[in-house]
Computed example of a mutant assay.
Amino acid sequence: MTSSTDRVAIVTGGSGGIGRVSVERLARDGLAVVVHYAGNKDRADETVASVVDAGGRAIAVGGDVADEHRMGAVFDAAEQEFGGVDVLVHTAGIMPLSPIAQLDLDTFDRVQRTNVRGTFVVDQLAAKRMRAGGAIVNFSTSVTRLQIPGYGAYAASKGAVEALTLILARELRGRDITVNAVSPGPTATPLFFEGKTPEQIDGIAGANPMGRLGTPEDIAEMVSFLAGPARWVNGQVLYVNGGAA
């Protein structure tokens, strides 16, 4: 495996929430980072600036995560700017909530396109183009175990992400590339807070054995581990949720 100062990471959804904190953590670990964004270029540029101001290396590249041509260009940029790709951290996803009986099918299709097809697209590119010693870190959710009403479409998409993760890990036999999925529990990000009352947020935090919500930094700690020293962790779904059932 190349040294951390020679390693290059692509972080999808790297302009906010868990993605941004993961970018900053990987940069502190010595990796050059490609900050992928879907629509918010200004926020991605701010993330890049925070890395560069701290002495790191980063660029921002936009694109629809489910578009293989746009995401191919993200990998092209990583190779042209930094020499290759060693780590993929795929945080990009959407989470509209609705009971299954009331969910509009167009919304269901949009969730599956972004979360399932998007994962397939970037994982396929990584499988073809990642250097030996690499690490693919997909994102699932603890909701696949918690079965919270309203999360049907999202949990279904993340169940598919877990299946892709476990199969790809075995398909990459002999490549020295690990493939794992991180499954956060409720985490204090804008995506989590959207549409919830203060009472709901307090209830969710209080139900956790640790008595709080997770933070993006908690999740980035696992990303750093899987992207770097965790060479014997492969084909796993790791629940990072403070002990939520």
Rank of each mutant, 00 (worst) to 15 (best):
D6C: 08
A9G: 06
V11R: 09
V21Q: 10
V23E: 09
E24A: 12
R25C: 10
L26G: 06
A27G: 04
R28Q: 14
G30Q: 02
A32L: 11
H36Q: 10
K41C: 04
R43K: 13
E46K: 13
T47A: 14
A49Y: 07
R57D: 12
A58H: 09
A58R: 12
A60R: 09
A66T: 04
D67F: 07
D67S: 15
R70Y: 00
M71I: 14
M71Y: 12
F75A: 06
E79F: 01
F82Y: 15
F82G: 11
G83D: 06
V87M: 08
V87T: 10
V89H: 14
L97I: 14
L103R: 06
D106Q: 13
R110Q: 14
R113P: 04
V116A: 13
G118P: 04
T119V: 09
V122N: 04
D123M: 13
Q124F: 01
A126E: 04
A127M: 05
K128P: 09
M130V: 08
A132E: 15
G133R: 01
S140I: 00
Q147R: 14
I148K: 08
G150T: 06
G150F: 08
G152L: 05
A153T: 10
A160I: 06
E162R: 13
A163L: 10
L164I: 12
L166A: 02
I167N: 15
I167C: 13
A169Y: 09
R170K: 15
D176G: 05
T178V: 03
V179T: 07
N180A: 05
S183I: 00
P184Q: 02
G185E: 03
G185D: 03
P186N: 10
P186D: 11
T189R: 01
T189E: 03
P190K: 01
F192R: 06
F192H: 06
E194R: 14
E194I: 00
P198H: 13
D202C: 02
G203H: 07
N208V: 01
N208L: 03
P209A: 03
M210L: 15
G211W: 04
R212E: 02
R212P: 03
T215V: 03
P216D: 12
E217P: 00
I219W: 00
A220W: 09
E221N: 14
E221F: 01
E221S: 14
F225H: 11
F225M: 12
P229Y: 03
A230Q: 02
N234W: 04
G235S: 01
Y239C: 02
